[in-house]
Each structure stands twice: as structure tokens, then as C-alpha cells.
Design a protein around this nucleic acid. Structure first.
Lengths: 140, 140
DNA sequence: CAATTTATGCAATTACGTTGCAAACGTGAC
DNA sequence: GTCACGTTTGCAACGTAATTGCATAAATTG
């Protein structure tokens, strides 16, 4: 996605267009995997940590990215599909965490199966799968 | 489960039998839901926080409890079934987090459906579901 | 009960995330 | 373009969560 599209994307979500936000979006789209806060911090050293935290938060609130809980506690963030909005999120895909390289991926090709639990009201689902990712398997 | 069974359980996992470990196991079994670190700390004030951290870690390594990641980042711990060992874990059940009371439950009645992703090696699965739990729904 | 290994408690440290505030920047109107 | 407004940024400080090192205490084995 080009720089110009990011401007549109931000405006569509009523977010101001700033250097930091454009750079964060660029980083996300240049990387097919989800990003941890650490990833952001390491790659965008020109911005303050606090600013990156706030950028992720505003992106999450606006439905630009979604938070993915992981086993180790350090959350990852994935770019949302165009079907997501501030109010309704639509990321019923599987999340894969690689034990080797630690990367987190959204497996868009695999939907999370629907579940019903008698007596419970289900609102959100998150299917976390871990093991060895494609890249790591090939590099053996 | 009685105190005597806990001694056996610990020995089976080559863990020394200590007051702290027995008390932690007692707390787990007296509570049908998963416990957060905070829960432990609040209920077992006679032990140091560091000791409780280390107890949970050794239990997790030995396959006595399993860590359940949650959306808010505060992990919960659930007692493993007897089918779990140090090497192979077997808790393919659904994990439910209640938005109201914050409790985490292992839904043993619901198995996690098997998935296969071409090119990936799958080792563990974690199905996180959130919403309103049975107890909170009834107390409205 | 003695010797050895492991667990515990305390203090200090590191890691992580948040808050308040002043300065800088983006936006829309003129 | 530039002005006024509201939002975003960077910095410093704060608060909490979790880890580490070390001396002491307790558990296991023979």
C-alpha cells in the first residue's frame, strides 16, 4: 500500500495524518506478520516510546489494528482487514505464534469455528495456535 | 482433593513437598475457575510474592498447571488434568474469560476443534472465548 | 541425624505501561 | 498564506509487574 493510501485510511477513521502514524502504517504493511510493541520500538527509534504506545492505542480504538494476546504475555498487533470499523471488528481468523522466531501471524485463510456454550453469552473469540511457522520450517 | 493426594501429586512430578506448594494446590482445587497471579497473592498473603511466582513457574514447567493468556495481558493459571505431563500437555478445552467479573474458566466440556495449516507445524492450540459467564448472567 | 540439594524471603533491579504538561504540529476557515 | 483551534508529540516522572542475587531455612536421601 502506498503512502497516499495511508492518508486516506487515517482520514477515513478521523485520525490526523502525522509522520509517526504514516511510518507505523508503512511498517505494518511492509511486514506480513503481526508486530509486537518491541518490534515497533526497535524499528522506529526516531519516535518516543510513549508516542508509539499512544499510536497503537488510537489505532486499536479506531479499528485499524487488533490486539492479539500471546502465551508469553507480550501482545502483538495485526493490521485489520478493510471490513473492520470502530464499532464492529471482523477478524475471525486464526492467529499463529512461532515458537522458533516468535513471530505472530494472522492466518486469514482459516476461519475460527463458531462455538456455543450453554449458559454463557459469547462475545468474542480468539483462536491461538503455536508451533513452527512456514519460514522456520523451510530454513532447516 | 485431599492434602495427602497433593503430596503424591508433587512427588509424581519430582517436586519437593512444601507448605507453599500444598497451599497453592489447595487453593486451586477449592476454586473451579482458573486463578490469576493476583488471586494467589490475595489469598496466600503468608508467602512472599516472589515465592508465588516461582511456585507457579515450577508448576507450569512440571505440567501441573497451564498458563492461559487473556486479552488484558494478565495471564491466568488453570490446574491441568491428570493426562498432562511435563512433556505433553493435553488441555484442548475452551478457555472462557468473563468481561464482567474477569474470571477465567476451563470449559472442559468443549474440545478445541483440530486445525491444519498447510506449511505450518502445529504444536499447541488455545481457544479463547470471552463474554458473560454463567454466574454473571444469572445474577442480573 | 548429618549431608546435600532445593525452596524461601528480602532487597534491589529491570521491564512495562501510564500520566501530566508544555511545545509542536495538523486541520479547516478566512 | 496565515490564523485559531484542537490534537499529537516528547519529556520527565510515576506506578505497577516481574525477575535476579544472595543468605537463610527447609526438604530429601541414606
Amino acid at each position: 500500500m502506498a503512502q497516499e493510501n495511508f492518508r486516506e485510511l487515517l482520514k477515513k477513521h478521523t485520525l490526523r495524518v502525522t509522520d509517526c502514524r504514516l511510518d507505523v502504517l508503512t511498517l505494518f504493511s511492509s511486514n506480513e506478520k503481526a508486530l509486537s510493541f518491541r518490534n515497533l520500538e526497535d524499528n522506529l527509534t526516531k519516535y518516543d516510546r510513549v508516542t508509539l504506545y499512544r499510536t497503537l492505542n488510537s489505532f486499536e480504538e479506531s479499528g485499524l489494528v487488533h490486539k492479539i494476546p500471546t502465551d508469553n504475555g507480550a501482545a502483538a498487533y495485526g493490521l485489520c482487514q478493510s471490513t473492520c470499523s470502530t464499532d464492529s471488528h471482523n477478524h475471525d481468523h486464526i492467529h499463529f505464534t512461532c515458537d522458533q522466531c516468535g513471530s505472530v501471524e494472522c492466518i486469514e485463510s482459516h476461519q475460527v469455528p463458531a462455538v456455543q456454550i450453554p449458559g454463557y453469552l459469547i462475545k468474542e473469540m480468539n483462536f491461538l495456535v503455536s508451533g513452527t511457522c512456514k519460514t522456520c520450517l523451510q530454513s532447516v
